[in-house]
């Protein structure tokens, strides 16, 4: 109308460009998936001859045909349980304080930046810290609890950050409505903020525990051994699946490579089960929210 320019619509070119982009994104996705599938298939093929009940239920051994991963499975479960018990309440409580209570200001900013930095610190550094503090200073020795404390430190920043994200994602109207009814801050948090944030918090917990179950370096630092019996108490020495895998792959014999592959499959199944149950739990929470439980 009023303008002096013309519109060169070039519909064909724009459509073609769009199609090329869509194709590129698809290839990127397929590439990642293919590599993952190839890895899994390779591991599964190597592992197949070794995977049986006795492999799961026996002790590690110098003789490949008698070697098993029972202590490592139990150790990993102990470690995950303890780490979750310590890191989740601590992380969620910290996030609640930072988001709902802490006064804004430079101090909060500094804390915030540091938490983000801590999430990126290499895990071996946490191992050194765990060795110095929990193993030596607190004198817990190379025990499950020392390992769990170390891993808790490692995943704490991830839990805090993801919980904060979840808290920020809650529609602010819900908080306002609750306050306007004469609720105290803790009533608002328990009745509305935490239930609404639960699915987001669960996602963070899943991600961080998945990271923790695959950690090797910090546990080697705190002294998780390769050849021990399954722990019976929090003060017992322990080993975990990644360390068992690491030890076996370090050996030259082919049989041990097969054993390592079998242990990897077990670790993957454990991880998958853990994630699946967490996702189911999360969906349950989400359903309760929508359904208004």
């Amino acid at each position: 109308m009023g303008s002096s320019g013309t519109f060169e619509l070039r519909r064909g070119r724009r459509k073609k460009l769009g199609a090329v982009m869509a194709g590129l994104f698809f290839v990127a996705t397929v590439f990642g998936l293919l590599v993952l599938v190839a890895l899994l298939v390779d591991v599964a093929i190597q592992a197949a001859p070794w995977l049986d009940v006795s492999f799961l239920s026996q002790m590690p051994s110098r003789m490949p045909e008698r070697a098993g991963i029972w202590p490592a499975i139990v150790g990993s479960l102990w470690l995950m349980g303890l780490t979750g018990l310590m890191a989740v309440p601590l992380g969620v409580a910290s996030a609640l304080y930072l988001e709902e209570y802490a006064p804004e200001g430079w101090l909060l900013q500094i804390i915030q930046i540091n938490i983000a930095n801590l999430a990126g610190v290499p895990s071996v550094i946490y191992g050194i810290l765990g060795l110095a503090i929990f193993v030596r200073f607190v004198a817990l020795g190379s025990s499950v609890i020392a390992g769990a404390m170390t891993l808790s430190l490692l995943i704490l920043p991830i839990i805090i950050i993801s919980t904060q994200e979840a808290l920020r994602g809650i529609p602010s109207g819900i908080r306002g409505a609750a306050f306007a009814l004469g609720a105290t801050r803790s009533q608002v948090i328990w009745s509305h903020v935490l239930p609404a944030a639960a699915p987001g918090i669960m996602t963070g917990v899943i991600l961080s525990l998945s990271r923790a179950i695959g950690e090797t370096a910090p546990l080697i630092m705190v002294g998780a051994a390769g050849m021990v019996v399954a722990p019976n108490s929090v003060l017992d020495p322990f080993t975990v699946l990644p360390i068992q895998i690491f030890n076996w792959t370090a050996r030259p014999q082919d049989e041990f490579q097969g054993l390592a592959a079998a242990a990897i499959v077990v670790l993957m199944i454990l991880l998958f089960t853990m994630n699946l149950s967490a996702i189911l739990l999360r969906n349950y929470f989400e359903g309760r929210r929508a359904g208004g439980g």
Binding site: G173, A177, A178, L181, A183, S191, G293
Partner: peptide, 29 residues
């Protein structure tokens, strides 16, 4: 705030049942 209630611009019911939306304020007070 219990004596001076507030209704907001955007409807902001709690993600709960109708009944619980009404009953919650009474419960906490």
């Amino acid at each position: 705030r219990r004596r001076v209630g507030m209704v907001f611009q955007k409807p902001n019911p709690f993600p709960k049942t109708i009944y619980k939306n009404v009953a919650w304020g009474a419960k906490i007070n």
